[in-house]
Amino acid sequence: MKVTHLYHSGCLVELDNHLLLFDYYQGELHLNQEKPLYVFVSHRHYDHYNPNIFKIHHPQITYILSNTLRHKYDAYYVDIHQTYQIDDLSISTLLSTDEGCAFLVHVENQTIYHAGDLHWWHWEGEPEQDNIYQKQTYLQEICSIKEPVDLACVVVDIRQEKDYLLGLNAFLKQVPTKYILPIHYFGHYETTKLLLQEHLNNPYHAQILPVTHQNQTFEILV
């Protein structure tokens, strides 16, 4: 599996016979024209959805969009808590704690998770009821993942300051995962240095990919 961190939450996953593009916002796209391309958008926020995805030049492209986007494109529009069979992809959706959905994709005997904005968003100064909702909903959703995950794209946002690891630690504890690609960086690549210094709750020994710059590619064995 080849995984490219494009920018922020955008990533490209290249498998033997498929290309999966998640939440493209910015970054350089280098696409194998011989593999079908599946473009996922978790929700309509500007940092997860760039309308230029509809200008991508590729001979075989399929769009899988949250139904929070307007239904004006030739695409599959997906709702939360549903499972879809699209070609040879099995795609399940989770409820985001912000807007739209998260994706759990089964293809080529691999399982890939992309969080979108599904995260434990705990903010100092917010009403306690809101923070409780974030915690309960996030735990409910990740606890619904019943199978091991090969690659998980998980929100790690240092704007949350001391609470930036809440979502990651909960995910590591709950979901057996081989590789974690931290997302939602907004260019704050110092996050990787912070993660290397943390004592994470990592009982399944997931390997965290050290994202240090835009358009960074990792080749991983799954």
Rank of each mutant, 00 (worst) to 15 (best):
H106R: 13
H57L: 13
T62P: 06
T62Q: 12
E126H: 09
I180Q: 06
H119I: 09
I145S: 01
C143H: 15
Y38R: 00
S96C: 08
G27S: 14
L15A: 06
V78M: 14
Y84W: 13
I112M: 14
H71I: 15
L21V: 09
H43D: 07
P203H: 07
G125D: 04
L151Y: 11
Q140F: 13
L195A: 13
T4M: 04
K135R: 10
Y38S: 02
L151K: 03
I220M: 12
N50M: 10
L195H: 14
W120T: 00
R44P: 01
G10P: 04
L89M: 09
E99A: 08
H114K: 10
T177G: 01
V156G: 02
L29D: 03
F186S: 10
D16P: 02
Q197K: 15
E108T: 13
C153W: 01
H71K: 15
D88G: 03
T68F: 08
T97V: 12
Y49W: 13
T217H: 13
L221I: 14
E219W: 13
T137G: 04
Q136E: 15
Q216R: 12
G27D: 08
S96I: 05
I132K: 06
H45P: 00
E190V: 07
E147Y: 15
F186L: 11
P127W: 05
F171L: 04
